[in-house]
Each structure stands twice: as C-alpha cells, then as structure tokens.
Design a protein around this nucleic acid. Structure first.
Length: 722
RNA sequence: GGACGAUUAGCUCAGUUGGUAGAGCAUCUCAUUUACACUGAGAGGGUCACAGGUUCGAGUCCUGUAUCGUCCACCA
C-alpha cells in the first residue's frame, strides 16, 4: 500500500469524522455490552450566536481527550453536546446587528424580536455544530440539547415552582444594577469595574460639607449621615431636623447616624440617594427612610430636578454645578478624582442603580449544601486553588436577581394580581383571575437570567427525574469549563443540583485557563488579535492545533497560542505519518490474515523494548488519570519521536533489510506492535491522523493472535498497563 | 482594602511526598536525499525574582519584600 510522503489533513479529516459518525460509537448505547461502567461529560452549551473561538477549541480538545481516553478504557462513555440560547449575550449580539442596519429593538414588538433572534440562533446552531465536528469532537449528537428545548424548559419551570413553594423565590423592590442602554437589570456578576477620572465636588449642605462625584443625584437628598462615634458631629443627634438651602430652594433635612460611614473619607458626612446607590439603599433600609427616584430608566432626570427635568445626567451635571456656584454652595472642586464605577459588562455603559421590582432567589440556603460538598471534596476542583475562590464566593453569597427585561429567554411563568399583588406560578397558563380577591392577573413579561436555566444543565439534559439516562449517567464525572465561569455557572450548577436531585452534579471540575494570542495578550475584537481556530485547523490540521492547545497547558493558567508551536505539532503529525509509512513499506514477507498462526521469535532486546513501552504507557496512564494531559501528551510525543523514530526504527533497519527471514519478521512485528500501541495512546490527542493510519495497519489476525483489529481505533483498547 | 496565582534557558512553559536543573521553539556546528528537510547527530545557554529561616541537603517547606496577572469587595 502506498502512502504519500506527507500527511494531508484536509483530505483525511472529514472522511474520518464520517467514519466515526457512521460507526455509531459516539453513542454509548452502541458500544456494546462490555461497556458497563458509565463515564459522562456534559459539554458546556456553546452560545449559538457566532463562531467557535479559541476558547471553544480548547474545550472541545480537552473534553474529547477525556472522552476518547475513557472510551478506549472500556467505559460506557457519554459526551453530551449542547447549545445555549445565551439570553442576554445573544440579544446584545443581535442588537448590534440591528444597529448596523439602522434598526432598534425598541421599535419592534417583543414577538417580532423574538422571532428574528430565534431565526438568527437557528442559523448559528448549524454553523457551530459543524465547527465542533471540525475539532474532532466525539460527542453523542443523538442526545444534543438546546437550552430552549421544551423538555428543558419544563424542568426549569418545575424547579422555579419548587423554589417558590419552598419560599426561596420572592418578588421584591430592591436596588438592582440597571443598564440604561440595554434596558434590563443585571446580576452582580454581570457588571464590570471601570476606573474613571472625574471631578469631585465639595458642596455646602447646611452646616456641613458633603463631597460627591454625582451632583445630579442630589436633588432629593434629605438625609445627612455621619458616623455615631464621630466627635466632630457629636452635637447633632440622630433624627434631628435642620433647615437648609439646597439646589432648588429651602429643604428640611434629617440627621442620621450610621456606622457605614467612613470617618476618614472626605468630611465624614454624606447625604444619601437610596434610589440610586446600593450603600445608601442599605442605610435607608436600616433606618426606614423614604426613597425617591431621581433618574428615570433611560438615564434622564425626573421632575423632582425642576428646571433640569428631562435632561440627561451628563448634560445636567455642569449646569447643576453652575447653579450651585451661583448660590454659593460649592466649596471647592477637585480635579482628577480617580474612582471606580460599575459598568455593563457587555456595552460598558455606566450602570445606574435603580430600585425596581424584580424576582430574587434566596441563595444562602442553597449555598450551604454546596459549601459542604466542596469542603468535603465530594466535588474535586482542578486546579485546587479555585476551591478557595468558590468557597469564598459561596460563603458571602447574596440573593440573585433572576429576572431580565429582555425577550430572548425563558419567560418567567408567573402572574400577579393587579389588586392584591398575590403571585401565581402558572406553568400551564390556567389561572385567569385572582382566587383571593377576584382581581385581574397580570402576566409576567420578564425572562429568566440565562444562568437560571443553564445552571440546571447537568440533570436537565439527562432527563431528570425519570429518564433512563438520568439514572445511568448522573452524577456526571467531569465538568470541564473556563475558570471565569466558576461563579456564573459551576457554583450554581452545584447548588441547583443538590437542591433538586439531592446529589452532586459532577465529581470533578476541571477549569482551563484563557487562550491568549502569541504575545500572551487577551484576545479581543477591539485589539484585532482574535484567532479563529478554524483558520488554524485549515492551515495546520486539527490534530496539530489540538496538540498545541494541550501540551504544556496546565489547568487554570492562560496559554499563548503561537503559530510556531502549532507548526511544531504539524511537523510531528508528518513524523507520525512517515514513521508509519516506513513500517508499512517494509512489510515484505510479513504474515497476512490468511497465513494462519506464525511463531515470532523476539530477541532479548525486542522484549526489553516492549517492556520499556509498557513502562511508558503505565506512566502516561497515571498522568491521564490525574488529569495531567499536558504531561501525558508531552510524554507520548517524546517517546514516539525520540525513542520510536530516532532510536528504534534506526536500529531495526539492518534487521529489516537483511536476509534472515525470521529476524525480519520479528523486527516487523516489533515495529507494528510498538507503532499500533503508540497510535492508541496518541489517539485521544490526535484522533484524525492516528485513525487514518490505523485503518491501513495489517493488525488483523496477527501471528500472536492477540491483536484483533476493531473497526476503528476509536474503540481499540487502551494499552494494558500490567 | 482583601484573596489567589505567577516569577526557572533568548521566548513559551514543565518540574507530583525536599536528594546534583528539563521540554518545545529560537540560536550555533555538522550531516545532504536516508520513511520523514515539516529530517538526523551534536553544542551553547539558568546564583530557579530578592532577603532571611528550617534541614546533612531547598526550584520544591516556612517568613518577609518586590514586580506582574486575576478575582472579590468598596468610600459618598
């Protein structure tokens, strides 16, 4: 059989992927009776709103390595793929597209918008799946799930109802993060910190001086707060009223003493704006103070601002200061005041805290069992230092705002009585009027935070509670995802799963780091350094990219993706190809399938080489079991190139080319054995090229009778380690 | 303000209970058609960030410092 002198990944990859799909072995049910013990990985559902990026390529590579390894070890292996509607994220992507077309979502009906985004998502689903396949992912497509599948939604709804009955869900008027651009609330995790340089104004407020960077919020300030132990203000008593001149005329202010005040900051006195500041809100709650909205949801001033009403805050700010100056109320202005502000993590708009009625989930009772499971190592987190990070967050968890004012998501299945405010969870849409007072019911228009549904992913995709898959494959073995999702997703999956199923969702969490550009910088569209993994597979082959992503890449640390490295592994692929070609080209006289049993006489050196290989594979297996793919891949790379190719093949040349038939046959058999065993270990890392070569190997009915060729390398047995 | 991680060859990084420093890429020398030049043989290159401590012995353990990175919280 004649092979070309270099490996052509483009010709091979699609063909081999089809061979695997046809074999059916991605599906654990098709693996046969010998595969008993389950091994399960649930793929993090890919956002169906764009293309696969370098981070996805890493996910697919690591998870496919684990899946192929376990499958070869005889586990009933399931890697379940999925897609995420990615609520807010997708809507943001789609809105950007609308903007480019000169449209706005606020001019469309919710139904129109939903329909368009659904079509957009549908297109992307196909695109994403073909890219996942390109990475060689051996996942079970027959079990693919989407976060908006009806059975998933049903499970999410049941959980919501259960949480409500258990008194863990409440609708509350609390201060939330409001993005004025996207017109939705956001959870605390969905905001970013941005450092800003602003002016800092010292204003005269009656007998006090207060400092602020946001004078436009101060119209309604009628409480002035100081620390109870601050001696400078000991003459003032809590609750005491004072009269003073303020922006739009005389007002009555009340003195409040609260320990939240930092005596060393500014003047130690501040006025509060409970509607637009989280700390102020807390103070107001403690002292049951009145709260008033100053800024509307579009970022414009309300009538309380008098002549400034209707103005945008940034326009109003200098004018307000002008007026205050005219009234002699500005003591001084500090330039270049550096402070940190909250911004929308998607559009960088300034977050305007607002008080708004939202749905909240009480987190403390859910977090407690999760904390225990992590502390007791029932769930093992790799790398270990993320354990502390997760525990710290869980120990300080606050209630989660789960409602979003966007259309692209799962609607919250609730109705509220317009008269008595009674809440009904109405999954089947059967309530029409209030049972208590007969009032009309208003249907909730908010949708769930996308993480409320994806947080239930592991048991939802397996058909909790009754499905056979749930009983077979749950709890799953590994959750592999990015370290940045430890709070957003991983922690919430643990909490929801323990709450709903009573069991942990996964035994191990493997957190990979970020994939950076060649210079080690974070990839971003604005920097223009985004690497498209599909370009790299095209250029160097998928196997080479996979190796570049895994060799030396320790979990939790970032990886600079350098083309030179990928090129190195492309060279390795060529090396594998040519070594195999050499072995195949020197098979003259090697017994074929029809030759029957032939005795092979191994020399002492042959036996030593075989036993050396076993030692190697034993070590590599140990590394694989310890999730050290970065070491395992390097070891097999090194063995194959610098031991098998450089030493063993070279040493065997005289024997292969000599006249002694028995010697030649022994040599042929040695090479075939070491090659095929090496290919098995290489397979999880470089599935395409190894499968292609395997398909050419004459390992059926070998003289020893031990190596029965299977239909593909993917289901060959992992080399024995005993 | 707190927490965590990193600091090892020119670059990117390994180094699992403490026992004389490793890989890939890059560089240099040699080999010149050999299964493979996407090759082979070899070479150079490191006070393991710094300062202390524990130890017979520290890249590894402890304390502190510096620089970089990440996360959490936040001061009006």
């Amino acid at each position: 059989m004649e092979l070309p002198s270099s490996y052509n990944s483009k010709e091979v990859e699609d063909k081999i992927y089809q061979l695997w799909e046809k074999s059916g072995f991605f599906n654990p049910d098709k693996l046969g009776k010998n595969y008993k013990k389950p091994f399960t990985i649930i793929m993090p559902p890919t956002n169906a709103n764009g293309n696969l990026h370098a981070g996805h390529a890493l996910v697919m590579t690591i998870e496919d390595i684990m899946t192929r390894y376990k499958r070869m070890q005889g586990f009933k292996t399931l890697w379940l793929p999925g897609l995420d509607h990615a609520g807010f994220e997708t809507q943001v992507v789609y809105e950007k597209q609308l903007e480019k077309e000169g449209k706005s979502r606020f001019k469309m009906t919710p139904e129109e918008l939903y329909k368009e985004i659904a079509e957009f998502t549908d297109k992307n689903k196909k695109n994403i799946n073909s890219q996942v396949k390109k990475m060689g992912s051996s996942c079970d497509w027959s079990r693919e799930k989407f976060t908006l599948d009806t059975d998933i939604i049903k499970i999410v709804y049941n959980t919501f109802e259960k949480l409500y009955k258990d008194n863990l869900i409440y609708k509350g008027k609390k201060i939330i993060n409001w993005c004025p651009k996207h017109q939705t609330s956001l959870s605390d995790l969905e905001t970013a910190d941005t450092e800003k340089n602003d002016k800092f104004y010292y204003l005269k407020y009656g007998p006090f001086t207060i400092a602020t960077a946001r004078p436009e919020t101060k119209f309604g300030d009628k409480y002035v707060v100081m620390h109870p132990k601050d001696k400078r203000y000991s003459d003032y008593k809590n609750g005491q009223k004072i009269e003073l001149e303020w922006i739009n005329g005389p007002i009555t202010a009340t003195i409040i003493k609260d320990e939240a005040i930092d005596m060393d900051f500014g003047t130690g006195v501040m006025t509060i704006t409970p509607w637009h500041d989280a700390v102020d809100f807390e103070i107001a709650q403690r002292h049951t103070l009145e709260k008033e909205q100053i800024i509307d949801f579009y970022g414009k001033l309300l009538p309380i601002a008098g002549e400034f009403s209707g103005m945008k805050i940034l326009e109003a700010r200098p004018l307000i200061i002008e007026k205050l100056q005219a009234k002699g109320l500005v003591e001084k202005i500090e330039e270049n005041y550096k402070h940190v502000v909250k911004t929308c993590y998607k559009c960088n708009s300034l977050i305007e805290p607002q008080i708004k009625e939202q749905w909240f989930l009480k987190m403390k009772p859910l977090a407690e069992p999760a904390i225990k499971a992590i502390e007791k190592n029932q769930i093992k987190i790799i790398p270990e230092h993320y354990k502390k990070i997760a525990l710290h967050w869980l120990n300080n968890i606050i209630d989660w705002n789960i409602s979003r004012q966007i259309v692209w998501g799962i609607p919250i299945p609730a109705k509220t009585c317009e008269k008595c405010k009674e809440i009904y969870i109405d999954i089947e849409n059967k309530f029409t009027e209030c049972k208590k007072c007969g009032g009309a019911l208003k249907k909730e228009t908010d949708t769930f935070d996308t993480w409320f549904s994806s947080g239930q992913w592991p048991y939802a995709v397996l058909g909790f509670p009754k499905n056979k898959d749930f009983k077979t494959f749950y709890p799953t073995d590994v959750m592999e995802t990015g370290g940045d999702l430890i709070f957003f997703w991983v922690s919430r999956m643990i909490m929801f799963s323990l709450y709903n199923t009573g069991k942990i969702p996964f035994k191990n969490v493997y957190l990979h780091g970020l994939v950076m550009d060649a210079k080690g910088q974070k990839m971003s569209k604005s920097k223009g350094n985004v690497i498209n993994p599909l370009d790299l597979t095209e250029k160097f082959g998928t196997d080479a990219l996979r190796m570049a992503l895994v060799v030396g890449n320790t979990p939790g640390t970032s990886l600079p993706l350098d083309e030179n490295r990928i090129k190195g592994y492309r060279n390795f692929a060529t090396k594998i190809w040519n070594a195999s070609r050499f072995v195949l080209m020197n098979l003259d006289g090697y017994p074929s399938a029809s030759s029957g049993q032939v005795k092979i006489l191994f020399s002492a050196n042959d036996k030593k080489l075989i036993s050396d290989f076993k030692k190697q594979s034993k070590q590599i297996t140990k590394e694989m079991d310890g999730f050290k793919f970065y070491v395992a891949s390097e070891k097999i790379y090194h063995y194959f190139w610098h031991t098998f190719c450089d030493k063993i093949i070279e040493e065997q040349k005289p024997r292969l080319l000599g006249q002694d038939k028995k010697e030649r046959m022994a040599s042929q058999h040695l090479l075939i054995t070491l090659l095929s065993e090496s290919l098995k270990i290489l397979h999880p890392f470089m599935p395409f090229i190894t499968e292609e070569i395997y398909q050419q190997l004459p390992v059926k009915n070998l003289p020893t009778g031990r190596q029965a060729k299977k239909s593909c390398l993917m289901i060959e047995n992992w080399p024995a380690t005993k």
